[in-house]
Nucleic acid binder design. Structure first.
Lengths: 229, 229
DNA sequence: GGGTTTCGTCACAGCACGGTAACAATGGTC
DNA sequence: GACCATTGTTACCGTGCTGTGACGAAACCC
């Protein structure tokens, strides 16, 4: 899962550094500029996942930047959060109507800003906000029904998918065949225990890549487990 | 374009009536309740497009309602705006982290609330705001009822249009046949599951262009999805 | 090492699932 | 009314998935 890319447009250097520092700490990839035109260039050449935009930056107004981001096809749907010292309702509404996705008034705490950013990202790109489960080099998206290893998508059958999901929801934990039957096949299923072995093999086969270790661990006389982090 | 459906959960009757009145005026379809459990029922039986949720309603807390909305698969992705008298940063962050999409403190002006609602909706379901959605090389204009692929217009039947629109509002996500029937045909429809297959085929046919991959993905034993970004 | 238990692997039969075409019913248009 | 577009249903077919038993390999115990 690539780090979400933020573009911070802010001319208060001290504030910009603080925000940048905090977001870096949260695993974001942050670029900063204090100039509206430069912001548009940066956004156009490598579209960020979200823009933090000061209401008023030296030269052009933040509003104008917002409008022009929306006009450009490449950046039209990038979510924007406006930062501002003003708390007039009039301005707030104007910002939202122009196309900002959220509006945070200064002074704000970094924690709140982080919470808002991740709330917005969760909506826009679920894959960026931890909707996907990641264990080691494996990632699984339950809603898209997708599995990838080291970024490359893997073809996984239905039962193997459910099996893997169960493992990834409890990484490192050992499950007996009976427990796996209950969890993956349903508690009422009347299926041979050994059948689990076969699906374990199919799962191993499905997520195998040459030169990489098998993440499924066999625990003799106990069951199977997914290699933890 | 159907009216966006709001669910308002608020126990201050006077405020509830005011909000309801204003949103009706904006063309929204509003249902109101003052009870957390009833809210969950209403949301489950006919998923709204957005929930306005009071922080503290008689009996259960709004937070609990929020959490349970998120837990239910049907309502997990419905955006939520919390309304609250508190303005503690701690609470605000907590609400956002729990899964609310936005947070408005009382007293608020109806205008601002409307602006925030439409900002969230624009982000989550652009089609509701009458905006053109773009996913991959597909674009869909909800007001003009037009679909284009790589710029060239495509002829798409009514049902296929609604189907495609639903897919494009949730790109990448897998929907079971039952879910598609609820979302596209209406929750009360009594239609064979396999009928969905036929319309999927018709949709595929309608948006097919030679030399391009089929954007509709079949997920065996799970449903269908539109190839995400 | 011999015996026993546990696991890995394979091939196969059965069938569940999705793709497709054909058809009847409906409703709108001229 | 005749025509056309659209819709929902069904039946058939092929493919891929699933569960099982059998056999050999490996690990464990003495």
């Amino acid at each position: 899962m690539p780090a979400p890319k933020l573009l911070l447009v802010e001319d208060d250097t001290a504030l910009a550094e603080l925000v940048e520092y905090r977001f870096r700490g949260e695993g974001y990839d942050v670029r900063t500029t204090d100039d509206g035109d430069e912001a548009l260039l940066l956004a156009a050449e490598d579209a960020p996942d979200l823009v933090l935009l000061d209401w008023m930056i030296g030269g052009t107004s933040g509003i104008e930047v917002c409008r022009r981001l929306r006009r450009n096809k490449e950046t039209a749907h990038v979510p924007i959060i406006m930062l501002t010292a003003r708390s007039d309702e009039e301005d707030r509404i104007r910002g939202l109507e122009i196309g900002a996705d959220d509006y945070v008034t200064k002074p704000f705490s970094p924690r709140e800003l982080i919470a808002r950013v991740s709330a917005v990202l969760r909506r826009v790109r679920p894959a960026l906000a931890g909707e996907t489960i990641t264990v080691g080099d494996l990632s699984l998206d339950p809603t898209a029904h997708r599995v990838a290893r080291r970024g490359t998508p893997m073809k996984v059958g239905p039962t193997e998918f459910r099996l893997l999901r169960h493992f990834m929801e409890h990484p490192g934990r050992v499950f007996s065949r009976g427990q796996l039957l209950d969890a993956v096949w349903g508690s009422g299923s009347d299926i041979e225990l050994r059948t689990v072995d076969v699906h374990i093999r199919r799962l191993r086969q499905a997520i195998a890549i040459p030169g990489a270790a098998d993440p499924v661990r066999t625990v003799r006389s106990a069951g199977y487990a997914l290699e933890g982090v």
